[in-house]
Each structure stands twice: as structure tokens, then as C-alpha cells.
């Protein structure tokens, strides 16, 4: 599977999957991201809300864990493709995340 996509999986720095509390801060290729624990596993997003840069660490999962909502002005984004739901035109970067033991691996979601 991984060979089919542009981006290879990368181990996330700064987060231990066993001890972390989610949403967790992590770093992907030097960029701050946030990892959410969803019903189906894990999903990552960029750290800063594209609206006014509030931290997505305070983001709330909603719609059966298919969306994430910034608490500051409730801009809500789809975890599948990062598109703004109630804020057309705004978009957040999303990452596929999987776990092996203590390590989380991520890559930008194919959209």
C-alpha cells in the first residue's frame, strides 16, 4: 500500500502512543501536528486552526468522530479531507496515523 502513495509513513516524534493522552501534540517533518484518538484509530491534523490560529489541541471530535471542531469559533473540519464544513473556504491539513507499539506513524492523507 505505502508504495502506491507519494508520501511514505514517518514515525512521529515527541509522542509515545502508550503514555500519551489524546489529543496529543506531535511533530511531522518538523511541523507541529495534533493526533486525535478516534473510534476507528488515529487521525492527525495541523496544529493551528486555519481561522485564527487557535491550537487544535483543544479541538473536539464530533459527528461520530468524523469531524474536528475548533472550540474558539466552532469552525468544524472533516477528518477525511480537511474541508471546512460550516466555514466554506477554510481547510485544515489532515494526516493518516497508525500505531505500532509505542510508535505512531503518519503521512498526509491522500485526498
Amino acid at each position: 500500500m505505502t508504495t502506491m502513495t507519494e508520501h511514505a509513513w514517518q514515525a512521529l516524534k515527541g509522542v509515545n502512543a502508550e503514555t500519551a493522552t489524546f489529543p496529543a501534540r506531535a511533530s511531522f517533518e518538523g511541523e507541529g501536528i495534533v493526533v486525535f484518538r478516534t473510534k476507528d484509530g488515529y487521525r492527525g491534523t495541523q496544529r493551528a486552526c486555519p481561522h485564527m490560529q487557535a491550537t487544535m489541541l483543544n479541538g473536539e471530535l464530533t459527528a461520530n468522530d468524523t469531524m474536528v471542531r475548533c472550540p474558539l469559533h466552532v469552525f468544524t473540519f472533516k477528518l477525511s479531507d480537511g474541508k471546512g464544513v460550516n466555514c466554506a473556504g477554510f481547510r485544515i491539513k489532515v494526516y493518516e496515523v497508525r500505531r505500532e507499539g509505542e510508535t505512531l506513524y503518519a503521512r498526509p492523507a491522500a485526498i
Binding site: P50, A88, G89, R91
Partner: peptide
Amino acid sequence: ELSSAERL
């Protein structure tokens, strides 16, 4: 096309 945050 859909707008973007900086351009409508």
C-alpha cells in the same frame, strides 16, 4: 468553484 478563505 468554492471560495477560499482569502478570496471570494
